[in-house]
Amino acid sequence: MDLHLIRHPAVAVAPGTCYGASDVPLAAPLDAAVAHLRPLLPTDAALFASPLSRARLLAEALGAPVIDERLREISFGDWELQTYEAIGCEALDRWADDPLGHRPPGGESAADMSTRVLTYLEELRAQKQGEAVVIVAHGGPLRVIAGHLLGLPPQRWLALDFAHARLTRIRVEAWGTTLQLFNR
Rank of each mutant, 00 (worst) to 15 (best):
R54Q: 07
H8P: 04
D68S: 10
R116D: 10
F76N: 02
L71G: 11
I74Q: 15
E123A: 13
W79Q: 13
D78P: 09
W95S: 13
L26R: 00
R7C: 10
D44I: 04
V117M: 08
G63K: 05
G101V: 10
R116N: 00
T115G: 02
Y120N: 11
E108Y: 07
L52R: 09
E123V: 13
V24Q: 09
F48I: 06
C89P: 11
L118I: 14
T119S: 09
L40R: 02
L57K: 01
D23L: 04
G88S: 06
M113E: 05
E69M: 01
G20H: 04
F76M: 03
S75W: 03
S75R: 02
E69K: 11
A91F: 08
S75M: 06
F48Y: 13
R56W: 12
A55H: 06
L118R: 15
L26T: 00
Q82I: 01
P9R: 00
L37P: 07
A27M: 07
S53W: 13
V11G: 09
D68R: 07
L121D: 12
V11Y: 03
V24I: 05
E60N: 10
E69T: 03
I74N: 15
W95F: 15
S22F: 06
D78V: 08
L41C: 07
H102E: 08
G107A: 10
R94V: 15
A10T: 00
R38Y: 02
P65I: 04
I6T: 02
I74L: 15
C18V: 04
P65V: 10
G106E: 00
D112Q: 10
F48K: 12
A61W: 13
P105L: 08
M113S: 14
I6P: 04
P9Y: 08
S109R: 10
A35P: 10
D112N: 14
P25N: 03
T115I: 08
P105V: 01
L40T: 06
Q127S: 14
V13M: 03
L92F: 13
P25R: 01
A49T: 05
C18G: 08
L124V: 14
I74C: 13
L124I: 11
A55N: 08
T43I: 07
A33K: 00
A91D: 14
P104N: 01
P51E: 04
V117C: 05
F48A: 05
V66A: 12
G20R: 04
A21C: 03
L41P: 02
A12I: 10
L26C: 06
L81A: 12
F76T: 01
L26N: 02
R70C: 03
L26H: 00
P104I: 01
I67L: 15
A45P: 10
S50W: 00
T119N: 11
V34H: 00
E85A: 12
E122C: 11
S22N: 05
P42Q: 03
G106A: 08
H102Y: 15
G20K: 07
A111D: 09
Q129H: 15
L26S: 02
I67H: 11
G107Q: 03
D112Y: 10
A61T: 03
Q129P: 13
R7Q: 05
A32Q: 07
C89M: 12
L100F: 05
C89D: 10
H8Q: 02
D112K: 01
W79F: 11
A64D: 15
D98M: 08
G16H: 04
A64N: 15
W95L: 15
